[in-house]
Design a protein around this nucleic acid. Structure first.
Length: 483
DNA sequence: TTTTGAGTTGTTCGA
DNA sequence: GTCGAACAACTCAAA
């Protein structure tokens, strides 16, 4: 009679550099891999439609990988705790392993499950499979948690070398007997009618192999110029690894090692600067998870309570215009349409559209956060919430409030030839570059030649930039002295 | 305990 | 067109 171990997958849909999987396998005997679709546990967030699409394809890729190694991925749906207990009974498992999650609801759920399973005399172990360093590893000299990025990053780097990645297993033991598994198709993670996923299919390859290909392409072609190209939505200048990271298809520690190995092998030294800027973004990812871990109310509460008095506007029409990419500001609209079409938006444009919603429209950052979480393939609570609060000015280490992005200037600066705007806002594609970001200033004959009829073929701006800017500055001024 | 230096991503205005 | 300063003080983290 061999021991059976359970490996519970969550945000770690990969075989490489997987400490929980290694622990389960190293116990010998048989390892049952299970993914649970949990929409019922306390605090379980409804998964966004774009993320659901990604999850479906990531699980498909993972199932193929596992079967290729002789194993099987078991799918179950229901409250995590019940599914795990059922599976232990069905398989006779005596140990359960997982890689840790850090969101408040996941932490409390997992702690409870660990306690219950241990009470049943099961061996339970959890690991870090998702962060460079876990929140409690990076501490101030006084033993507290960091609220400012720079010292956090400095302290994190001072922790020393990260362990080498764990190689993927060469084979996975077949299960001794048949174990019930849901069919992935029955989870209905894909859109049926209408099938809006065409843009996603063209843009992405979910799964561990897709993640590695993306990283390799980034290091080969993009990393060297990353410092400059990262700000350009009109060119492929970023890594686009965020959804792969969000689902744990590649570990940040493995990215770290692969990238730094490339820097060391590069005699010219041209890669170093870009790669370090990129790795710093992994530091931000850790920082955001750290913030959420120590501030569990971050998703719905201003980190800086002074903003509790901010006069957010209730304006459903403005929100709809923003969501649909019909604000009349071409860069904002391009970004929102890219998001809707591909489940992604370039980082520079995310800042512009977020600033626009919060400051020009004075809509509560939580409204934008919810929309992003529902539509982004890389939707991640910690990153999303921390970045929205940062933009609003109420977050940790936040942007100063008077930093209000000018949607016109940002377009002229970072999409200088208008390629990005013309792609996502095709009704403006014949506008001369000079007026592309401000079609309302174009003379009538230019508009006519470009086939643009403002208010008909493309909206007039829903707010005036200068008036909206001044209104936002006034509102900030009003809450300045608030407690 | 007090002091000190520093702090992702911008815009506007006036010289 | 380019450049520096103003925009706000406040809080964090370390010495």
């Amino acid at each position: 009679m061999t021991d059976v171990s359970l490996y519970w997958l969550r945000k770690d849909l990969r075989l490489s550099d997987n400490p929980a999987l290694r622990a389960a396998l190293s116990r010998g005997g048989c390892t049952v891999c299970v993914f649970i679709l949990d929409t019922e546990s306390e605090g379980a967030l409804p998964i966004g439609a774009a993320s659901a699409w990604w999850l479906h394809h990531s699980l498909t890729a993972l199932m193929n990988e596992i079967e290729g190694l002789g194993g099987k991925l078991i799918l179950r749906r229901g409250p995590s705790q019940k599914c795990l207990i059922d599976l232990c009974q069905e398989t006779g498992a005596t140990a359960v392993y997982w890689n840790r999650c850090y969101e408040p609801d996941a932490v409390s759920r997992d702690s409870e499950i660990k306690k219950i399973l241990k009470e049943q005399d099961l061996l339970v172990e959890s690991f870090n499979g998702s962060l460079l360093h876990e929140p409690w590893e990076v501490q101030t000299k006084a033993g507290g948690s960091y609220g400012v990025f720079s010292p956090f990053w400095k302290a994190e780097q001072a922790l020393g070398e990260l362990p080498q990645p764990i190689p993927a297993p060469k084979k996975l033991p077949a299960l001794p007997s048949a174990i019930d598994s849901d069919a992935l198709e029955d989870w209905s993670l894909l859109p049926v009618a209408p099938d809006w996923a065409g843009g996603l299919r063209e843009s992405w390859t979910p799964g561990e192999t897709g993640a590695r290909t993306r990283l390799a392409a980034f290091l080969d072609e993009i990393a060297q110029g990353y410092n400059e190209t990262r700000n350009r939505p009109d060119i492929e200048g970023t890594s686009r690894l965020s959804p792969h990271l969000a689902f744990g298809e590649i570990s940040p520690r493995e990215i770290w090692h692969i990238a730094l190995d490339r820097v060391r092998a590069d005699k010219s030294g041209a890669l170093e600067k870009g790669v370090w800027s990129f790795l710093r973004e992994l530091g931000w990812r850790d920082f955001n998870h750290n913030l959420l871990f120590y501030n569990p109310s971050l998703p719905d509460t201003n980190y800086n309570s002074r903003f509790d008095a901010f006069p957010w506007q209730n304006d459903p029409d403005a929100v709809t215009a923003w969501e649909q990419g019909k604000t009349g500001y071409p860069l904002v609209d391009a970004g929102m349409r890219e998001l809707w079409h591909t489940g992604f938006m370039h980082n520079r444009v995310r800042m512009v559209v977020a600033s626009f919603l919060i400051k020009h429209l004075m809509i509560d950052w939580r409204v934008g956060e919810a929309w992003f979480r529902d539509t982004l393939v890389d939707a991640d609570l910690a990153n999303n919430v921390a970045n929205w609060q940062w933009t609003a000015g109420c977050g940790a280490d936040a942007a100063p409030y008077f930093r209000i992005f000018n949607p016109i200037g940002q377009g002229e600066k970072f999409d200088p030839d208008g390629l990005y705007i013309r792609h996502w806002v095709p009704e403006l594609k014949n506008m001369p570059t000079k007026y592309l970001n401000k079609p309302w200033e174009a003379p009538p004959d230019i508009l006519k030649t470009a086939g643009v009829n403002l208010g008909k073929t493309y909206p007039k701006p829903i707010v005036s930039h200068i008036q909206a800017r001044n209104r936002a500055l006034d509102a900030y001024n009003d809450i300045k002295g608030a407690a």
